[in-house]
């Protein structure tokens, strides 16, 4: 009984074993015997890790591009893309500056000159960052125009405002890291303003800059904020945001 295995045999061989079955839960579209029925569609959603994000069924009108413009989802995807490209960049970057040890800037030069795909990934990271600030703004506007902040979604709007603030802070802390003239002076314009905080102005500025003016300490401080602290906090607020979307009854509407 020797014959050449056809595609079906291969499929069966791959799917019909304990390892495969242990990975994909019953109802997974990758498991043997998935049929395109209501039951299996429901199971496919329920037995997937995406069940953390999506319910089994969603309102039909929410699928229309003209309802969400996919702005929240795009913001989230950009955040993931930024994390991935950002991790790549971290392999080639040292947050060190100061006369005689301008490593950060040298790393930026090497990144485009010597690292394979270095400038591509850097470009991607930068453009995605600008785009994400934009999509988060637009997402906020879309939510506003749909009145989607009205009960029971008031609190999720506030979580959203925190997300907006965190997004801006991430963008701003990242702006300093190339340590070129653009970075230094764009950031000074911003931090100079913070120095005018009533009463605690000088202290606020000192804490933010790690000194009286932008220097190597600022770079280290903002690097840690940018690659660790702020993404961590953002992730937590994102979790609350998504959880509330579902608890508040899914996407709002139809209008």
């Amino acid at each position: 009984m020797s014959r050449i295995p056809n595609a079906d045999d291969v499929k069966k061989g791959v799917q019909d074993n304990v390892i495969w079955k242990s990975i994909f839960r019953p109802g997974s579209i990758y498991r043997k015997g998935y049929r395109d029925t209501s039951r299996d569609r429901a199971l496919a959603a329920m037995n997937n890790v995406l069940y953390h994000l999506h319910p089994v069924k969603v309102k039909r009108h929410g699928l229309k591009l003209s309802y969400t413009y996919c702005l929240g989802g795009t913001s989230f995807f950009l955040f993931i893309l930024l994390t991935v490209t950002g991790i790549f960049l971290m392999f080639f970057y040292t947050p060190a500056a100061g006369s005689g040890s301008e490593i950060a800037y040298a790393d930026m030069q090497d990144l485009s000159a010597a690292v394979p795909f270095g400038s591509f990934v850097r470009n991607m990271h930068r453009w995605a960052a600008h785009l994400m600030t934009l999509t988060v703004f637009l997402h906020m506007a879309r939510v506003f125009y749909h009145g989607a902040y009205k009960p029971p979604r008031e609190f999720n709007w506030i979580v959203g405002i925190v997300l907006l603030l965190l997004t801006l802070l991430l963008a701003f802390t990242g702006y300093l890291l190339p340590w070129d003239q653009l970075a230094l002076w764009a950031v000074s314009v911003g931090t100079d303003m913070m120095g005018y905080t009533p009463v605690f102005g000088d202290q606020v500025q000192f804490v933010l800059l790690g000194g009286v003016q932008i220097g190597p300490e600022t770079l280290l401080r903002w690097y840690v904020l940018h690659v660790l602290a702020l993404p961590f906090v953002l992730t937590i607020f994102l979790a609350v945001h998504f959880w509330r979307i579902r608890k508040d009854g899914g996407i709002s509407g139809p209008l």
């Binding site: 800037y105 400038s119 701003f172």
Partner: peptide, 25 residues
């Protein structure tokens, strides 16, 4: 976008040389 447009990288940061104009992001 990433293939065709490069992110800017100007001269090394220099606290004593303020560009004119200095603009925020």
């Amino acid at each position: 976008m990433a293939v065709f447009v490069n992110a800017p990288l100007l001269a090394l940061a220099n606290p004593t040389n303020t560009p004119n104009p200095s603009k925020a992001p």
